[in-house]
Design a protein around this nucleic acid. Structure first.
Length: 460
RNA sequence: GUGCAUGUAGCUCAGUCUGGUUAGAGCACCGGAUUGUGGUUCCGGGGGUCGUGGGUUCAAGUCCCAUCUUGCACCCCA
């Protein structure tokens, strides 16, 4: 028999890992709710027409496509099968795909349900997404995104709140982060300023890599992309611009004074950063002109969050998209959102050792099983304990004591109750503390109070 | 999609360079010391088609090729 396995880039999660993952999800969910966001879910698969063309050329390549059911070749001739380009053939034999992110399905959702929605609509969504990427550190083929989006409002207050959410989530999780903020409109303005408006994508993709490949690398890449030497020359001071925001913004405004779009981007960004400064952020935050982000649909603010202590790439990102719903037939609806990468956050926290004091979820007490009589007797006590919200279980068979004790020990169950025939007769129970090893007998009626007392003493 | 590594017990790894009896260790698991007491100790035990397929050789875990897995870099990204 072949060893069972799971597809490349996917993972199983053990109980220990689930406790930790749930901790992340719960933290994020609680903060989302705190800011008035409401949950929605969408299907794992979407029609391919919904997904294609939204993530750029690269994104399309990374879509998982689902083969049509039944005879998926019935409408394809042998000739087409042999000579059609693979991409064209793919659309003929597959009309569904796994979602690539949560933002595009959400845009589809908003358009489809527009009459039921009160705008501005603040929604959160925590679900897995799939990308046919080659897996490596911090990159999986199935991973969870935790998204919060506001749709139907152009106010920069939304950007401010989303960054506050970021700040609060990472503070609660105990990760030190830096929040990088930029604006596509500023990038557009810069492209216009250096006389390369048509090459904006090449320019932004190149400068996005500044911290990775250095200034020379960026210059090389832009030159290869067809930007003029003059333009590159003109761009350099902007890339290396340092100093306080108070100095950088006026300098930028002066440079982009002929670009209404650029000036608008600067104004928006100033508004956001001013708010954040007044509100007092726990995380470091800054204008980062080298931040570009790849997703095609961003038009305004762009946000990216990096862990300060662990190199992991972006653990949260987002931005404003002015016309994502337009593609689905609903014009002039602006949205802005962020997305937490739960799996990367997990990896960061794991490397930082932040999970160590997170116990494994398990029962607070286990009853030893001595046989049919005792079993029946204990089941009644168990029921009473559970009614008092005390997590409790009985070992399901009358196995050897050693085996039952080992089970309790391995599951980190703090208390074991022993009720044999003697105890049954006089309504008593042996109560053993697994940490200290000490044991005494008490009346079975006292058990609920005993555990409530102990759970308080244990701090939770 | 491109390049480079990697794979030996449930887990972490040694053995591969330099082919040569029956492939090892630690941890985990099971049993016993201890018939109503786990976590410490001692004793014993089960476990492996050496990722898979092919090739070279008298002989392959070891060398060669292919393939898959996992990881790293690029591309891109959470």
């Amino acid at each position: 028999m072949q060893k069972p396995s799971i597809p490349k880039g996917t993972r199983d999660f053990s109980p220990e890992e689930m406790v930790r993952r749930d901790h992340i999800f719960d933290t994020i969910k609680n903060v989302f709710r705190l800011f008035g966001y409401q949950p929605v879910e969408t299907p794992a698969m979407e029609n391919l027409a919904t997904l294609t063309g939204k993530y750029g050329e690269e994104g399309d390549k990374l879509l998982f496509r689902i083969l049509n059911s039944g005879n998926f070749l019935s409408k394809v001739s042998t000739d087409e099968l042999e000579h059609m380009p693979p991409a064209a053939l793919a659309t003929r034999i597959s009309e569904k795909g796994l979602r690539y992110d949560l933002t595009v399905p959400f845009a589809r959702y908003v358009v489809q349900h527009r009459n039921e929605i009160t705008f501005p609509f603040k929604r959160y969504q925590i679900q897995p997404v799939w990308r046919a990427d080659k897996p490596q550190r911090g990159r999986y083929r199935e991973f969870y995104q935790c998204d919060a989006d506001v749709i139907g409002s152009r106010s920069m207050l939304n950007e401010v709140e989303l960054i506050q959410i970021i700040d609060e989530v990472f503070a609660r999780l105990g990760i030190k982060v830096s929040v990088h903020v930029n604006n596509r409109k500023i990038l557009t303005g810069i492209a216009e300023y250096i006389g390369e408006a048509g090459n904006m994508m090449i320019m932004t993709m190149a400068i996005d890599k500044l911290d990775k490949i250095g200034l020379e690398g960026v210059v090389r890449e832009m030159r290869a992309g067809g930007l003029s030497g003059e333009a590159i020359e003109k761009l350099q001071p902007i890339l290396t611009m340092k100093g306080k925001l108070k100095e950088r913004f006026p300098a930028l405004q002066e440079m982009l004074k002929n670009s209404p779009t650029g000036l608008e981007g600067i104004q928006d960004t100033m508004t956001i950063l001013k708010y954040l400064k007044d509100l007092g952020m726990k995380a470091r935050f800054d204008l980062d002109l080298t931040l570009a982000r790849g997703l095609d649909y961003y038009t305004g603010a762009i946000i990216e969050v990096l862990a300060e202590d662990v190199p992991m790439g972006s653990i949260c990102g987002g931005g404003r998209y002015d016309d994502l719903t337009g593609i689905f037939g609903m014009k002039d609806v602006s949205g802005v959102g962020i997305s937490f990468g739960a799996d990367r956050i997990y990896d960061v926290m794991n490397e930082m050792g932040l999970f160590e004091n997170l116990g494994v979820a398990s029962s607070q007490v286990m009853f030893v099983n001595f046989g049919p009589e005792e079993e029946r007797y204990c089941m009644n006590i168990l029921q009473k304990l559970r009614q008092e919200r005390i997590t409790a279980e009985i070992y399901p068979e009358a196995a050897k004591m050693k085996k039952q004790m080992t089970y309790a020990n391995n599951k980190n169950i703090p208390f074991v109750v022993l009720i044999g025939s003697e105890e049954m007769k006089n309504g008593r129970a042996g109560l053993k503390n697994m940490k200290t090893g000490e044991q005494h007998t008490i009346d079975t009626e006292e058990l609920p109070d005993e555990f409530k007392k102990n759970s308080r003493a244990a701090g939770g």
